[in-house]
């Protein structure tokens, strides 16, 4: 396992480097520049800005400078703010996004699993239908519509919770719920169908025939074997949730890091684009690794380390 971890770490660096390089090329190949705006900017002002941020140097040089800077864990300045650096963006924004994302994740996993398992055990009876209707609403009503409704009714009309901003725990409830609905529904559906598949397998029948108690079968065998697809999708879901949702943070005025991914690109704020991408990629790579490791814990027969055969 240790050797495998080391190997994956090596791969992680290669993967990160590829992401950086491709992103660097992509962002310089799309039209636009960070100082473009509707209107006039004299040549001199434009040149001064280019010079100030080293953008007048050849791309290869810029690329080299960036990697050098990165080696010191410095993501550079934001071209749109003379006040906050990319490091500041991440250091200030990530804890907020992480908090919101984790809360949404907990809701999504808890209710998703419960709904999924209950639905599968009560197949084609009312708990199954209730869970399905909830899931369908969760999936076909996207977070921003749900958020708009929650603000309008729960916060303003009924006055139960604050509208927006990020200043106390009660402020986190509506955004967490808005964010959680979709993954919750996803997990519920996935869990239900995976459970049904497992419940139909021979070994479950065997266990049943052997007279093992029903709840033992469900917990020891069924859930354990059925949870694998949920674990798989959790890798990507978690990476997306903890790095912030642009739309939800925008609607609730939450100072997370979600906006970096979107505004960085619209503003052609090159260091912000690279910084956010690298950060996201690192988290994604890490979580995907964790998922692979988790496979072997859930089902020790699974071999991902490559020694098999």
């Amino acid at each position: 396992m240790f050797r495998y971890t080391l190997k994956r770490l090596g791969w992680a660096i290669v993967t990160l480097w590829a992401v950086i390089t491709i992103t660097f090329l992509l962002m310089h190949s799309i039209p636009g520049n960070p100082f473009a705006k509707e209107g006039t900017m004299p040549e001199a002002v434009y040149n001064n800005l280019q010079h100030y941020y080293n953008l007048d140097k050849p791309l290869v040089v810029q690329y080299g400078l960036y990697l050098k800077q990165l080696a010191q864990f410095d993501f550079g300045p934001s071209l749109k703010s003379k006040t906050i650096t990319v490091n500041d963006y991440i250091v200030n924004g990530f804890p907020v996004s992480l908090h919101l994302g984790m809360q949404a994740l907990v809701i999504a996993i808890a209710f998703g699993l419960i709904f999924g398992v209950i639905a599968s055990l009560n197949r084609n009876r009312w708990p199954d239908y209730v869970s399905m209707v909830l899931s369908i609403i969760g999936i076909s009503v996207p977070s921003f519509i749900l958020a708009t409704f929650l603000i309008n009714f729960v916060a303003v009309e009924w006055g139960l919770l604050p509208v927006a901003t990020w200043s106390s725990w009660s402020h986190t409830v509506l955004p967490s719920v808005s964010l959680a609905m979709m993954p919750m529904a996803y997990i519920a559906r996935l869990m239900r169908s995976s459970m049904l598949e497992v419940l139909g397998q021979d070994y479950i029948n065997t266990a049943r025939a052997k007279g093992i108690a029903k709840h033992m079968i469900i917990f020891k065998h069924a859930i354990r074997n059925a949870i694998l697809p949920v674990v798989t999708v959790l890798g990507i879901i978690t990476a997306n949730l903890v790095t912030g949702s642009f739309i939800i943070e925008q609607i609730f005025g939450i100072p997370g890091m979600g906006e970096m991914f979107v505004k960085g690109i619209f503003n052609r704020d090159y260091p912000v684009i690279l910084g956010s991408t690298i950060f996201y990629a690192a988290i994604l790579i890490f979580l995907v690794f964790i998922v692979d490791i988790a496979y072997t814990f859930i089902d020790p027969r699974i071999k991902i380390t490559g020694e098999s055969k």
């Binding site: 708009t148 603000i151 309008n152 916060a155 303003v156 006055g159 604050p162 509208v163 927006a164 901003t165 925008q250 609607i251 609730f252 005025g253 100072p255």
Partner: peptide, 18 residues
């Protein structure tokens, strides 16, 4: 000064007296 970009949100805050 708050820094909320979504106009519909700020409108709800205005309605709410915030």
């Amino acid at each position: 000064f708050l820094m909320i970009e979504e106009a519909s949100t700020t409108w709800q805050m205005y309605r709410n007296g915030e």
